Computed example of a mutant assay.
Amino acid sequence: MHPAIKLRHIRLFLAVADLGSLTAAGRAEGISQPAVSASLAELETLLGAPLLTRQGRRIALTPQGDGFRRHAREALAALEAAARATLPEAGPQRLSVGLLPTVSTRFFPEVVGRFLATRPGVTLSIETGAHPDLLRKLKDRRIDLMIGRMPQAAELPGLDFEFLYEEPVVAAVRSGHPGADLPIITALRDHPVVLPTRDAIIRKTVDDYLAQHGLATLVPAVETSTLALGRGLLMATDAIWFISQGVIEAELHAGTVRTLPLGAAYLSGAVGMTRPAGLSPPDSLARLMQLIRDAAEARRSGA
């Protein structure tokens, strides 16, 4: 390998390969898009092979790039493991968990209380964010576990997904909403619509639902998957928010928010735990995962 190749080259290449965009990779890594382009061009020169090609507005891997990604990811993971191996065995333990919005407001907080009661010396480092960002951090071993919607099939190589429960996408409105008794299509045409962000894993499902009901050209008033903003919009306006039910469970339980009947069973999807394949979890992580399984079983049984 050329001695001028640095870890920054590798990390930026993997970010672009995962996100399919120079701009998105630069935003994730905290650098400008021109700096990403320059770094990738430098890496290709040092390797003597093209790694990326443009397909419309997205970046795709060449055959050489696909092979390089596989080996580069394994090498980076090995380096991360080597760094962790230098840490002293004694002292505080830390687990890094990535949460998608559907589990971050109620399901996982309830698990945390049980976990801390049995592992008081462990610090849980929690990251929330968009699916692509958390998935890339998981693949780079920067988080130990990701909990949320099931990744797409193309994203699963090198990962293990464990099913926990099914969760629907709902159309949420405030209690007393003027469109609550209208047919759903009429309500959607007559009121502002809030959709998940474009990088949210449920967005395509929602777009397909709208297209099947003749609303493919509907322009959302707002795009967000964030509870604080979405809840505020529901309370302050007559908006209809398409979101995973788990995000608004507390509001539904309190009666401040209700859902409109969508009549589409396919809007339900799998929620589960995703981890790098082939790795045995350390004791504390294994305990956390078991508590998550127990909570999911209680949810499935209605307990």
Rank of each mutant, 00 (worst) to 15 (best):
R114V: 10
H131V: 03
P101S: 11
Q93P: 09
E110P: 06
R149D: 00
A83E: 15
F108P: 07
Q93A: 08
V112H: 05
L156H: 10
F161R: 13
P63Y: 10
Q64E: 15
F68P: 07
E110S: 14
L124R: 04
S104R: 13
R119E: 13
G148P: 06
P88A: 03
D160C: 08
L138M: 09
L76A: 07
S96T: 04
V103T: 05
V97E: 02
L95R: 01
A82N: 12
M146Q: 11
I143M: 10
E110M: 11
A117Q: 14
P88T: 01
A85M: 02
S104W: 04
V97I: 11
R94E: 02
L134Y: 06
I126R: 02
A153I: 05
E155A: 14
S96M: 01
T118M: 09
L79F: 09
P151I: 03
F161Q: 02
A78Y: 01
Q93C: 09
D144V: 03
E127Q: 14
G98N: 01
G65D: 08
V103A: 11
G148K: 02
L138D: 00
Q152Y: 05
E127P: 07
V122T: 02
Q64D: 15
G67Q: 07
T86R: 15
F68C: 14
R141I: 01
A90K: 13
Q152T: 05
R106L: 11
L79K: 07
R70C: 12
P63K: 10
L134S: 11
L79H: 10
K137Q: 06
E110F: 10
G91H: 06
R149V: 04
D133L: 13
R84D: 07
E89W: 13
E89C: 14
D144W: 06
R70A: 15
L95C: 02
M150E: 12
Q93L: 11
S96G: 03
G129A: 10
G121Y: 04
L135A: 13
E74V: 03
M150L: 12
A81K: 12
A75D: 00
I59G: 10
P101K: 11
A77Q: 13
L145V: 06
L159Y: 05
P157Y: 15
L135H: 08
A60R: 00
H131M: 10
P132A: 03
A75R: 05
L76R: 07
R136W: 04
A117Y: 13
I126M: 06
E80L: 15
L95V: 01
P132G: 07
D133M: 08
T123K: 05
P132F: 13
Q93E: 12
G121H: 04
T86P: 07
L100H: 11
S96K: 07
E89D: 14
G121P: 03
E127T: 06
V103N: 03
E155R: 12
R114P: 09
A78V: 00
K137M: 03
P157V: 13
A153R: 07
F68M: 08
L138K: 04
G98K: 01
G148S: 05
Q93I: 03
E155P: 05
H71P: 02
D144Q: 02
G65W: 09
A82L: 14
S104P: 12
G158D: 02
T62Q: 06
A83Q: 15
S104K: 08
